[in-house]
Simulated assay, not measured.
Amino acid sequence: MNPSASGWINKFGHLVVHKSKAFESFEDLYLQLKNNGFVYGIHLEIANFIDVEHSLTEDEVAKINLLTALYFTHLFETGKKDFDTFVNTVFGYYQSLDVGKISFLNKILSGTHTASQLEKLIDSRIYLGGNAFSRAFGNSLTNSLLFVDILIFQHYLNNPGKTMQHAQLLEYATMNIVYKALSSKKTHETDEKLIQLLDASLTYVNLNENEFNGSYTELLRKNFTKYEKDYFLDMACLTIWEDKSLDRTETDYILGLGKDLEKSKKEVKSAVSFIQDFFEKNAPRVSYLNDKNLALQFYEGMSKSVSKLILRNSKRLKKELAESRELVALLSKSTVKDLDPEERKKVQKQLIDVFKSIPSLAIFMLPGGAVLLPIFIKLIPKLLPSAFDENRVEDS
């Protein structure tokens, strides 16, 4: 399954139809989504019953986990396995929240089938702002509050009439808990990054407006479900444990929050222990904890995205490159020495001709796309070695 190509939702449906017992219950699903980071807004792994052809980027992991969580939530709440029914229900759910409106142009480009439109809609949930060009090449963030969508969907399936109000309440409560958790600790640089990421992920509520009256305690005592309370506790644990320590003030806060959420001390300690183990295992893979400068992060993001595009179109690229001996010769030469200005101009012109023949590479023809050509040229010999065997020099 390739979540960056059209038709991936139907492919998921083909895979999941035989895996309806992949999770025993919503509680089991929640635990798995904590283990792979999705509950925490950290997109690391997917369910092991899904086969993928290539290594996945963060946004692709997020897409698959969002759809997986939505499908099994629908299954547990309704008992219905039919995938078409699920797709129509999810599409109606997001429409009720006025999320990801499908334009007339998008209908022409992606087809009028609900699954095709849902692919566009899920895409709109994954990324935080920015245009298609900046998103495609790493200059964006991945939504860190996606699990809220699952909790709202659970509510929608049981109470479809007040979906937006509940969505706003969940986001508002989540952010208030995170801010309250931060106030219990000394501010750290990565705390600020986490807050910026969560703020950018808000969809349904504007924190600058006074959406809800009443105190913080009154807010927590609203009629939240068990799993909504579990999520609040886990987000608080994520916030206070980010600096890998827990002082007296933080301990008092998290125990107090647990009491307000009607959780036992054992449940609170278990939640703290879980996030501790999660960080010890995955800290190097959590992007907002990365201290690399923005320029390096941007370059690495672009490199990963360009690599993905090359891999996704490797067969087509091999065919197109094989028909241009001069281009292959120049690209091969570029692996061992710098090209002169005239040669670089030839490579750029001929690559643009190649891009014209492969629709998914048309983004390189957008304004600014030429900036990415050096990355593309650097990666082609490594990802398509068969076309460069004659002159390729391996690194020692």
Rank of each mutant, 00 (worst) to 15 (best):
M1H: 07
S4P: 00
N10Q: 12
K11V: 11
K11S: 06
F12S: 11
F12C: 14
K19S: 07
F26T: 06
E27W: 04
Y30Q: 11
L31E: 11
N35F: 03
N36F: 07
N36V: 12
F38Q: 10
F38N: 07
F38G: 02
Y40I: 01
G41S: 01
I42N: 05
I46E: 09
N48Q: 10
D51K: 15
H54Y: 05
T57Y: 10
V61I: 13
N65A: 00
N65S: 15
L70F: 09
H74E: 03
L75G: 05
L75Q: 08
D82M: 12
F83T: 05
T89M: 02
T89D: 06
F91I: 09
G92Q: 03
D98E: 15
D98T: 10
K107S: 10
L109A: 10
S116H: 06
Q117T: 04
L118P: 03
K120T: 03
G130Y: 15
A132C: 06
A132K: 12
S134T: 13
S134L: 09
S134D: 08
S134Y: 13
R135P: 02
R135W: 06
A136R: 12
L141K: 07
S144V: 11
L145D: 03
L145K: 02
L145E: 03
L146W: 05
I150M: 05
L151T: 11
F153D: 01
F153G: 01
T163L: 07
H166M: 07
A167P: 00
L169G: 02
M175C: 04
N176T: 08
V178G: 01
K180Y: 02
A181F: 02
I195W: 09
L197Q: 09
D199N: 09
S201C: 00
Y204I: 14
V205N: 08
N213R: 13
G214K: 09
T217Q: 06
E218I: 03
L219D: 03
K222Y: 00
N223Y: 02
K229L: 15
Y231T: 01
M235W: 15
A236S: 14
C237G: 03
I240E: 10
K244A: 01
L246I: 13
L255G: 01
D260E: 14
S270H: 12
A271G: 11
A271N: 07
V272A: 05
S273Q: 15
F274D: 15
A283S: 03
R285N: 13
V286Y: 07
S287R: 12
Y288I: 15
D291W: 13
N293S: 09
E300H: 12
S305V: 02
V306K: 01
K308Y: 07
L309R: 10
S314L: 06
R316Q: 12
L317V: 00
L317F: 07
K319D: 15
E320R: 10
A322G: 15
E326W: 05
L327I: 08
A329R: 08
S332N: 01
S332Q: 06
T335Y: 13
V336I: 12
K337E: 14
D338C: 08
L339E: 08
L339C: 11
E343L: 09
V347D: 08
Q348K: 14
L351K: 04
K356H: 13
S360M: 07
I363D: 07
M365T: 13
P367V: 04
G368K: 09
G368L: 13
A370I: 09
P374R: 06
F376Q: 04
K378H: 14
E390C: 04
V393E: 14
D395Y: 04
